[in-house]
Each structure stands twice: as structure tokens, then as C-alpha cells.
Design a protein around this nucleic acid. Structure first.
Lengths: 120, 120
DNA sequence: CCTCGACAGTATCGATTGGTAACTGGCTAC
DNA sequence: GTAGCCAGTTACCAATCGATACTGTCGAGG
């Protein structure tokens, strides 16, 4: 018997974790960092349209959760590099499965939506 | 070459879908419905602490996305049964992987958090 | 000399959401 | 007769999201 949380217990921290790793920006950040460390602007540009404030919040949370490391180089101009930790890397597989699902089933969902909307 | 979305395109609907299926309540609802159809209160009680309004919103969204069907029996007291569609069932595997990850790595994350908080 | 841009963010302000508490109607059980 | 079940809805409030503007330091260009 392994020590293990239970997502159906509202007081269990897995609830928070599940919400955290299901976060849109977190998912995209993990997928981008899959191929190696990136800088702040590289993440921002890779994600596309994200306010810097929100990206900072996301990355700080991920750092706190032990998913990424944040290395600051005291240079001019400043350089900050984000790297996946082993814990963060272990998320790549589950998240890739999820994003694959989203990409593959997108047409089915959009048609379901238009059917639903047309039935009103 | 299969028609397929790209989560890194901000204009692609996969963005929305990724956010939708990563939603806390959606994940829990899918996991609960894995073993068969459930009624509204069964879902509410299974999830634990969710406001009825929020659960309704979640279920309507899932219905619109084609993940669940909503059957209303015009009885007294009213009875509404939610069932996973094949599309919704195809989400079970990815989501189970995610929730397993959360349950297994919960200790690692909580220790990472306390280390981070202690370092301030 | 003076301004412009890069970088990694912060500050500020609305708009949008997420969530809580209270209410609905029709019945049934106490 | 009043209390509760069922599946929600309504009114309201707090937290969050997102867009825009700004910071400080430096090198490059005119």
C-alpha cells in the first residue's frame, strides 16, 4: 500500500495539484520546456498571447511546486532561464496525452458545439 | 496527414478545449461517470464540495462539448441522469493518467512547496 | 548627445469569471 | 403543518484574468 492522495477528498492537496497541472498556461509551458530550457521571452513568444504578469505568476507557481527551476544570470540585459525538474519532466507524458487528445478530438467537439447551439 | 489542431496557435480551438478538459470539476465529473451514469446529486456528493450552480455550469458545458448526455425524466421528484458519451469516455484514459500523477506525486509537491516557502 | 530597443519583469485598471448563500416548485414523509 | 428531497436558478460578491503602460540598465545607431 503506497501513500497516495485521493482526488475525491475535498481536503486532499491532490485537488489543488490537479487544478494546477490542468492550468492552461502550465500545460503549455511544460510542453514548450520539453525540448530544453527556455528564457522568459522565449516562453512568452512560444505561448503566443499571454500577459507577462500571468506568465510570471504561472512560472512562480511552477517553481514553488518543484516543476521548474529558475536561474537568474546577473547580466545586462538580464537573463533568466527556466528548466524542467525531474518532477516537471514526469509531467510531460500525461500532459502530452492530454494535448494529443485535444488536438485529435477538436473537430468532434466543435461539431458537437454547433449542433448544441443550433438546437436552441 | 490528419487534420489536427495545434495548441500553440492562440486562435486554435484546441486552446479552449485544453482549458475545458483541464477544468477541475470536469476532470472529477469524468472520473465519477467512469463507472456508469449518475444523477445530479450523486455527482455533487461524489465531488464533495461544489456549489450547485458551478456543477450545473460544468455539466452544461460538457453537454455542449459532446462529453455527456443529459436525460431528464419528467417525474416527481425530478430525475436527471448524466451519461458519458463515447467522446467523453475517450477522455477517461488521459484524465486517469493525470489524476494518478497528481495522487502519486502529491508528497513530492508538498515538500517542494514547504522548502520554497521556508527559503523566503 | 540622445533616443531607441532588449530583457524580465512590475503596476494599474477594468472585465470576466468563480464561488457563496438563499430561493423555487411540487411532492412526500413525519 | 412543516420539514425535506430534487435539480436546479437568482442575486450578489470576491478573486482572478488580461491588456496596457511602466521600470532599470545597458549597448547600438544617428
Amino acid at each position: 500500500m503506497v501513500t497516495r492522495g485521493n482526488v475525491f477528498d475535498p481536503n486532499c492537496p491532490t485537488r489543488v495539484i490537479l487544478d494546477r497541472i490542468g492550468d492552461k498556461w502550465t500545460v503549455l509551458a511544460v510542453l514548450l520546456l520539453r525540448d530544453g530550457p527556455l528564457r522568459f521571452t522565449e516562453l512568452r513568444d512560444g505561448i503566443g498571447r499571454v500577459a507577462p504578469k500571468v506568465l510570471t505568476q504561472t512560472l512562480r507557481r511552477m517553481e514553488r511546486d518543484g516543476l521548474v527551476t529558475r536561474e537568474v544570470f546577473a547580466e545586462i540585459p538580464p537573463r533568466v532561464v527556466y528548466t524542467l525538474t525531474p518532477l516537471g519532466s514526469s509531467l510531460i507524458a500525461p500532459i502530452s496525452v492530454l494535448s494529443d487528445w485535444a488536438e485529435i478530438h477538436m473537430p468532434a467537439i466543435t461539431t458537437a458545439q454547433s449542433q448544441y447551439d443550433a438546437a436552441l
